[in-house]
Design a protein around this nucleic acid. Structure first.
Lengths: 345, 345
DNA sequence: TTGTACGCGTTATCAA
DNA sequence: TTGATAACGCGTACAA
């Protein structure tokens, strides 16, 4: 059986007004605490509205105001411990400012990413926060979004110089630093397990790695560089490839683009009957919740995920509410966490 | 500078219609693939709409149809590895059915939970999925929600017999089973680190623990039962309390209400200079991503988190789209995962 | 202080 | 096949 009025169970201003014999405007004013309402009528209205279970219809409000108080959040992989922390930060700030968040998970698939954004746009979100999985050279998709005027802030995986703010970390410097840490420990034969280099963190971190080698006069051995995805299975696969090299042509240390990849690689090393750090030193990036618990605790770069989320949400909301808010690229500071996997004593 | 028309950069049906000199209805029909449009005009319209960058305004559509294709998801703690998996399952099903999800994180706070639900209701979500943190006896809040006709499905932490479906796991049986596993290994002095027993999983799991003791003729020692929250720090705190007992009055094995609590307790044990399982055997619940990596890998109950999410979303959407969909209480099957923390050989 | 008219963008309905 | 009108629920602008 359907409701006579399509509005599900919900009470409208008009229904409250009719019940009291006043106009909808008076009810509206009373409920929104506008000054020009007689105190007695206000009380009557509030009482009745409450009894009738009135809740304002934000859909109608949004249609009039072109403001939904909703923001879209697009992330590549909610299972990585980094992202739930980011989302927590986003949610905290958003709620404080009375926004709700639409969450979409793209599973590292750019096509799904685009579809999600179209859905969010159709829902008329006030803005979107994106950690992009785009692996193409062509940034016109995001350029169009930004040109259209939809407020957009990238976080973690950014697309630079196309007119959107970005909240990330110092990927280049941190990657250089952790690589130098390996070099300083005496490792010279160092391999790199990369993610797609078209993705910002893929490029930045790899470049940091190369910069460290150059600075110390070490050569980049192309055979020791693999390019796969950002998950455990990708790390496992990449490391398996390196393990197929003849023993004297293998690297002695490994830098992984992130912790899930490092963790996958460690599994491949273990299965090959070898040990970390005795046979391979290895370092990661992101300080996954599992990093310190690995059989050989993983040396990595700690990222302030919660702060990234808060900062990104805050920047987006400022951009939404004030279109003179400047575009900026923020790099939050990471911290090198030295554990045993790099051969630390 | 503001837009003349408040609709941000978005093109409307009317604008497309004016550009072609047809009525909005014709444009609407063309775009929605209704049959009664001349094929030539349809083509002209689609072409122009596309060129102008038309995207339908779902807010306006929702106002007319009283349907938003949005569902609210309320979870207690997104940082627990269990919940991101659930959310992933929810998102997968929801997207397939063209729904978007509003995510809210309550940090185990019932007041925040209620506020989130009010916000979601004001946004006129088509339904909500809730894992409740309510710790009161009085269920009238949810009774009112359900009576109001807002489709609601609980998952993981349910509130029973008040007219909503619930997708959970066999908490009672699994808790009994894992407790019996300890008993069968010869442990007789068994303590319990509980969460709030007003929360469904708190009660079910504790009752399962007690049932196992009873079945084997063991007494429940009240001193060995603590009631705290569901996080690591709660487990740490609870275990610290037990460790203050004189050595001969301490339990020899511990059942924790979930893995985060078990992990916190293990930390307390380690800090006290004692070992798992040598000094204390311990088991958890939920198969946290860290469980197998603990210094003494944690024996626990694996929950099909992703399946819980898919099933919950699927049930909610069915309930939304067909109000004759029966109320049901589903218990998905868990699996006992035996590792070393229970003294397994 | 209170009420009336109108518009936000869309679709259902009925008329042409 | 196409168009005009009304309605969804609310708030702004103006009138009483």
């Amino acid at each position: 059986m359907k409701n006579k009025k399509g509005n599900n169970g919900n009470v409208t201003l008009k229904e409250v007004a009719d019940a009291l014999g006043v106009s909808t405007m008076t009810v509206s004013r009373a409920i929104n605490n506008k000054p020009n309402v007689d105190e007695k009528t206000r009380e009557r209205i509030l009482k009745t509205a409450n009894e009738m279970g009135y809740t304002p219809n934000l859909v109608a409000k949004s249609l009039v105001s072109s403001k939904t108080y909703s923001i879209g959040v697009v992330i590549p992989e909610i299972s990585h411990s980094f992202f739930p922390e980011v989302v927590k930060g986003i949610e905290e700030i958003a709620n404080k400012e009375h926004y709700q968040i639409f969450l979409t998970n793209t599973s590292e698939d750019f096509e799904k990413e685009k579809k999600s954004i179209e859905a969010l746009r159709a829902k008329r979100v006030d803005g979107i926060l994106v950690s992009s999985s785009q692996t193409e050279e062509d940034f016109s998709y995001y350029e169009k979004i930004i040109d259209s005027g939809l407020p957009l802030v990238f976080f973690d995986r950014c697309i630079g110089n196309i007119g959107a703010s970005c909240i990330g970390v110092n990927d280049f410097a941190a990657s250089q630093q952790i690589t130098e840490h390996l070099i300083n420990r005496g490792y010279k034969k160092i391999g790199y397990l990369s993610g797609p280099k078209k993705v910002s963190i893929g490029k930045e971190r790899f470049d940091g790695f190369v910069a460290a080698l150059n600075k110390h006069g070490l050569d980049l051995n192309e055979k020791w560089v693999t390019e796969n995805g950002y998950n455990e299975k990708d790390g496992y696969h990449a490391m398996s490839t390196l393990l197929k090299l003849p023993e004297n042509e293998r690297p002695r240390a490994i830098v992984a683009v992130n912790d899930p990849v490092a963790i996958g690689a460690m599994e491949a090393i273990r299965e090959a009957g070898m040990k970390v750090p005795d046979d391979f030193a290895i370092v990661g990036f992101s300080d996954d919740i599992r990093a310190e618990l690995m059989p050989s605790p993983l040396t990595t770069v700690h990222q302030p995920a919660y702060e990234v989320g808060k900062k990104a949400a805050s920047k987006l909301i400022k951009t939404i509410e004030d279109n003179t808010e400047p575009i900026e690229s923020v790099q939050l500071i990471t911290k090198l966490i030295i554990r045993k996997s790099c051969g630390s004593s």
